[in-house]
Write a protein that binds this DNA or RNA. Sequence first.
DNA 1: TTTATTGT
Length: 298
Amino acid sequence: MWRTGATLVFGAGLGAAASRLLSAGGWREEGGADLMSRVPVIPVPGVPTVQASELQVSPGSSGAVMKYGFPSLGNIKTRESYVTSYDPLTRTASWVIERLNPASLSGLSDRKYCEFKEDDSIHVFHRATNADYKGSGFDRGHLAAAANHKWSQKAMDDTFYLSNVAPQNPHLNQNTWNNLEKLCRSLTKRYLNVYVCTGPLYLPRQEADGKLYVRYQVIGRNHVAVPTHFFKVLILEQADGKGVELRSYVLPNEPISEQVPLERFLVPIETIERMSGLLFVPNIMKRTAGGVRAIADR
DNA sequence: TTTATTGT
């Protein structure tokens, strides 16, 4: 069984497909086959590539990884393998962006040389520690995945900062979430670059009194927040230079049968933007001539 | 293969 026990309810204005996908009773999709025709894989025609000189929103030297802009502008950190925004309240990242291509995926780096470590750049009041996770029942789930950065041991090491980690259901992490990470890597065979933005979500649920509450567990002495869900936004650059495509996923932080196809978790990017407080599409539109075209349920 | 934790 993979459906959520709790009822998920979102605010007005969500796309029909999204509200159907996330409707009361959990994640069972009722739209049938035509749901897929109305959801994600968004073609973005127009400018195929953007020159580095056009980058203006990038604080620091985040470079090519941030080509499509920042989802938010607080607590930005740039590491060897990713750029991230840290949320001191939850003791985990708001989002992490990485760029995958065949070069980033190949190399001799090995996670056996890596250890999860505190992020000393974060104030000790707001920092997760390994002790927080120990015995919690949750995995230290990577946001930017280690195997995405075999090109450099330093790059792989940097994914082991606990600021790039969130408490994740072990079954989810080691099965369906792992499969989603593998899918991201396999897409580098068909696309020039795969930009991946990953983060936690803390979604409201309807409780017994009929009202909506955001409720999440916290673990350890530092009260590291356990996300209710995780998102992944993929920006896929076509190799022929014709433009980019978007795909965005939301998965509940609970066991999911591997029998459930990943397509079942596709959602319109606007759904993630509303739920997360982040913005992706304005950035992408700024970076492309044609903008985001024709999403049926937008 | 990659994702991990726990115990010795």
